[in-house]
Design a protein around this nucleic acid. Structure first.
Lengths: 152, 152
DNA sequence: CATCATGTAACACGATAAGTTACATGAAAC
DNA sequence: GTTTCATGTAACTTATCGTGTTACATGATG
C-alpha cells in the first residue's frame, strides 16, 4: 500500500455510476478490480454527504444523488473524510525547542501553500469535467479503431 | 507512524549542528528526542550528498560541510532520497480503462502543480533563513523573560 | 419466504517510518 | 598497542494504515 487511493477509486466509481444510472457494489468492484466491501466502505462517506444514494434488495445498488456539474473533486475528498494530502510533516506539533519551532514554521508555510493550491485545483474540477474528458477519450478510441480498420 | 518526518528531523539536526560546530549522534538524538541510530541512518544521505561530514573516534561527530546560505530545504529533501510528498495518489499508473485514465489525468495535473509549488517553496528557503528565524525567536524569548522579570 | 443487495464488524496482509539491539570499523587518548 | 569513543550498518521489533477478505445482520423486491 503505497498511497491512499480512495479519492482515485471513488472518482472512478462515480463516473461508472454516471454511465449506468444504477450499479451494484459487485459490478463496481469488477470495474475497479477490487472488493465489493471496499466499495461499500469507501462509498459510505459519499452517501452521508448526500452525493450518492444506495438501495437494498432486488434492483438495488448505487446511483448519483446530484448533478455531475455540481460536484467538485474537493467535494468528494471532503466526503471521504478529508484524508491527509501529504506524506511528509513535522515530528512534533508544538515543540518547546526554538530550533524545532523555526523548522516547523517553515515547513508548515510551504505545506500550507501547496495544500491550498491543491484544494483550489480540486475545487476547479467537477465530475462533469471528468465525464467530458472520458467521452472525449472514448470518441478518440473509436476514431482510432476505425482508422486502423481502414488501414488494415 | 503517521507521516514521514525525516525532513523535519534532519532540518532540526542541521540547525543544532550549526550552533555547535561539531556534535555527536548521541547529543543530536537527545536534542531531537530520538535514537542515535536513527540520526546516523537519516544523516547518511546528507553525508553522501556532501552536506555534512562525519568523524569517528574521540572528538568526532557531525559537522556542516557547506555554508548554511547555500543549502535549501529542497537540497536536504533531495539528499534524503526525495521521499514522496503526497499521501494520496492514483491506484493504477497506466490503466486500460478510459474512465480511470480520465481520473488519473485530472489527479496527476492537480498533484503535479501542487508538487511544483511545494518544491519551489522549499527551494526558496535556505538553512540560513531557518537559522535566522531561530535567532529571532531566541532574542524574543530573552526579551520576554526580561520583561517578566521587571514586571514581577 | 427466498433472493438479492447493502451495512458493518472483525481479522489478515503489506508497506513503511521509527525505535532498538548488537556488533564491526576506525580514530584519538593514554 | 590497548582502551575508549564515535560512526556504520545489519537485523529485528513496533505502530500505523490502506486494502483485501470472510461472515453475518438488515432490509427490499419478487
Amino acid at each position: 500500500m503505497k498511497r491512499d487511493s480512495r479519492l482515485s477509486i471513488t472518482l472512478h466509481a462515480l463516473l461508472h455510476m454516471a454511465e449506468r444510472q444504477i450499479i451494484t457494489s459487485d459490478e463496481l468492484a469488477a470495474c475497479l478490480s477490487t472488493n465489493p466491501v471496499v466499495v461499500r466502505r469507501t462509498m459510505a462517506g459519499l452517501r452521508e454527504a448526500g452525493l450518492v444514494r444506495s438501495e437494498k434488495g432486488h434492483g438495488g445498488g448505487w446511483s448519483l444523488a446530484r448533478d455531475l456539474a455540481t460536484v467538485s473533486l474537493a467535494d468528494v475528498h471532503e466526503a471521504l473524510g478529508e484524508a491527509a494530502f501529504f506524506a511528509i510533516g513535522n515530528r512534533t506539533e508544538s515543540p518547546g525547542c526554538l530550533v524545532e519551532q523555526a523548522v516547523n514554521a517553515a515547513m508548515d508555510g510551504a505545506l500550507r501553500d501547496a495544500e491550498a493550491l491543491l484544494l483550489e485545483r480540486l475545487r476547479g474540477i467537477s465530475l462533469a469535467d471528468l465525464s467530458e474528458d472520458f467521452q472525449r477519450r472514448m470518441a478518440l478510441r473509436h476514431q482510432n479503431m476505425k482508422e486502423s480498420n481502414y488501414g488494415g
